[in-house]
Design a protein around this nucleic acid. Sequence first.
DNA 1: GCCATTAAGCTAATACTATTAGCCAAAGCC
DNA 2: GGCTTTGGCTAATAGTATTAGCTTAATGGC
Lengths: 194, 194
Amino acid sequence: MPRAGLSRAAVTDIAVELVDSAPDGFAGLTLAAVAARAGVAVPSLYKHIGSLAELRRAVALVGLSELLRRSSAATVGVAGPDALRALGRELRAFASGHPGLYAATQVAPDLNDPTALALAQVAHDTVSVVISVLRGFGLADERCVDAVRATRASVHGFVELEAHGGFGMPDDVDRSFEALLDVLVAGIGQLART
Amino acid sequence: MPRAGLSRAAVTDIAVELVDSAPDGFAGLTLAAVAARAGVAVPSLYKHIGSLAELRRAVALVGLSELLRRSSAATVGVAGPDALRALGRELRAFASGHPGLYAATQVAPDLNDPTALALAQVAHDTVSVVISVLRGFGLADERCVDAVRATRASVHGFVELEAHGGFGMPDDVDRSFEALLDVLVAGIGQLART
DNA sequence: GCCATTAAGCTAATACTATTAGCCAAAGCC
DNA sequence: GGCTTTGGCTAATAGTATTAGCTTAATGGC
């Protein structure tokens, strides 16, 4: 009975690969698929993870960390509308290139999970990036959270509708996304003047 | 062996009730729960529906129809920014009051499903309502589809983030939604001027 | 270098899920 | 009243996650 040399990180890595390549993505993640890829029986996975739900949250942490990394990288040295556009484009590109990982970033966190703290931390940092990006618009403090939510909602909504085939007609989706960024830039600019 | 007097419509109605009351909502819809509520064994349901997936699409049709009905009702006799705000508020209210039914409206349609045509029809009509609402903004024709997509994306994204607990801090979410509508109105107004 | 402990795999079993096959009786039609 | 259709049933299959308990590989102490 030779060992496969698994670990919590190795199992999570396999899950990350699977959610981006499997047809059913994050929602269709299954321990059977992970075990098959690892060359191991299903119950063996429980030596490294507590449950499927916990594995899903581990994948979520990877996704959120990558999202934070990209968001930061895309907006260093840019400000105002340009930064907002860059952030939006990067988010859409991430969701397009890693649909499963992006979907994972939407899971609800769970307390009494080993990764709960790390997850809350990276989620906070991600919001901080958005706040920094919006700083260039000169928003009043009490308007800032509204602007952050409008930004997240708009981009996330677009990305999700696009991913789930919600846009019936195949009119140029790239152009529509640029229009969304126009709407956001103009709208938040207006929000700053009220 | 007395009969329960089920039918496709009755089964669908039970499923509709369940997705709005059950904790796991639309994603956690199960034939076992439907059968229990109907007072029938699970396999008996197959006399009325083809599969769980088909039942989910039937629920989606109910949800989309209700969404269309409410969207129309909320925007008759209103125009321009007021209509857009009314539409947005109605959508959010629907999602808040019927979370399972709202989630159901996001399923991907499937051809060779008995309800595929009806589903496409009601989806088309729903988009028509949004187009009518945006007519008051005086958009160029080629900008119209972009504006529709920006509207759907923004509102849907907000509603979904709100439903999944995506807004960490409990700052006034109602106010943030009104701010989103402000952003949308200002942004689409700007889009019309380009 | 051996021994004891820990840790990582396994099989087996349980409890769910959907789905199909085949049977049986209730309801409706002629 | 009998025949057909239809709506229920039980039983069986295959898939899912999860727990329990066993066995053996790797590792640390002396």
